[in-house]
């Protein structure tokens, strides 16, 4: 395991320290818990937005704390949901009197920990609502299972709910638009190589030199199946076929597109994937309104990528266009 670290057990602590050194004008850390909040939290008269998850997905989620997006991010151990006490402190720190929305990715652990924190905060009289993001179409949805996972599309929820909250909307309204995003959002990913959790010290799975994993999660969880490596065009078509049909996205739809690198895949390759996605969508007469290409929600040094598609209407477009200024997501209106 070749990593730029000091000690596998100190990775999260030291990363947070380096993160705070980098962005003192954006963020501060709460005492005793691994939670970062906006420097100015709580923002009076604004609904507070709290998200979080395991570490190892940087810049998610701490990188999205700032104007126009989140108010707080709770950082768990690597690939491990944060704990209720952290989330509870986050809620308390960002409640500006209008209540707090929790943006949770749909993992058993995340949901349980966030809901325990919600119960604790409600006992303090804070109004807390939640939305659960489950954009990954790789996993079949079924009432018998946990349901779909939340992956990189979550950034669109942060962005759009964040813009709505920034406008001064009420908690219910912010939740409503977040749910609209979730309802219109689909993602799917694949991997070329695994990643190594520092504390584990070895890859969580292995792939042959000519093998790829389709439908991979963002925690090194195995995907839906393996196949022989193939070209970017074919890989994109396989993911897009599943994404498109699921909503379904139709002729004439306008979408926001995210090509998200999982860690090691060079930006040049993400752009090649973007070309393929655009050509695929052109063929279906689906119009790309806005594109994001980069590393938005990673899996340590995993090589691979995911595609997220969000169907837009006028409200979502204008919220997506709103300006945002966070360490990892900056956008001029």
């Amino acid at each position: 395991m070749k990593k730029l670290i000091n000690n596998p057990d100190e990775v999260v602590k030291e990363m947070i320290s380096g993160f705070l050194y980098a962005y003192p004008s954006y963020l501060r850390k709460l005492d005793n818990v691994d939670v970062v909040v906006r420097k100015t939290s709580p923002v009076d008269g604004k609904v507070g937005l709290v998200s979080g998850g395991g570490s190892g997905h940087e810049p998610a989620h701490a990188g999205y704390v700032g104007k126009g997006m989140l108010d707080a991010a709770c950082l768990g151990a690597v690939f491990t949901s944060p704990t209720p006490d952290q989330i509870y402190e986050a809620i308390r720190a960002v409640d500006g009197g209008k209540g707090v929305l929790l943006i949770i990715k749909n993992y058993t652990g995340d949901v349980m920990n966030f809901e325990m924190a919600k119960e604790m905060a409600e006992m303090d009289g804070i109004k807390v609502l939640e939305v659960i993001v489950d954009d990954d179409v790789a996993v079949e949805n079924s009432t018998y299972t946990q349901g779909r996972r939340g992956i990189a599309g979550t950034i669109f929820v942060h962005k759009i709910a964040g813009a709505k909250a920034e406008e001064g909307a009420e908690l219910e309204e912010v939740k409503e638009v977040a749910e609209k995003v979730i309802k219109n959002l689909r993602s799917m990913g694949m991997a070329f190589t695994p990643c190594i959790v520092p504390a584990a010290g070895k890859p969580s799975f292995t792939l042959d030199e000519d093998e790829i994993e389709i439908g991979i999660g963002i925690h090194g969880e195995p995907g839906t199946h393996r196949e022989k490596i193939k070209g970017a065009k074919e890989i994109v078509a396989e993911l897009m076929d599943k994404i498109i049909i699921d909503l379904p996205f139709r002729d004439g739809d306008e979408v926001a597109l995210m090509i998200n690198g999982l860690g090691s895949t060079p930006l040049s390759e993400l752009f090649i994937a973007n070309k393929e996605v655009n050509e695929y969508l052109l063929g279906k007469n689906i119009n790309v309104y806005k594109t994001y290409v980069g590393e938005y929600m990673t899996s340590l040094e995993m090589s691979g990528f995911s595609i997220s598609l969000l169907k837009l209407d006028e409200e979502l477009k204008s919220l997506l266009d709103a300006s945002a200024d966070t360490p990892a997501f900056k956008q001029f209106k």
Partner: peptide, 12 residues
């Protein structure tokens, strides 16, 4: 355990 384990097994 709740405040240190995290994940699914922590709350459980």
């Amino acid at each position: 355990l709740v405040s240190t384990v995290g994940g699914a097994s922590g709350p459980l």
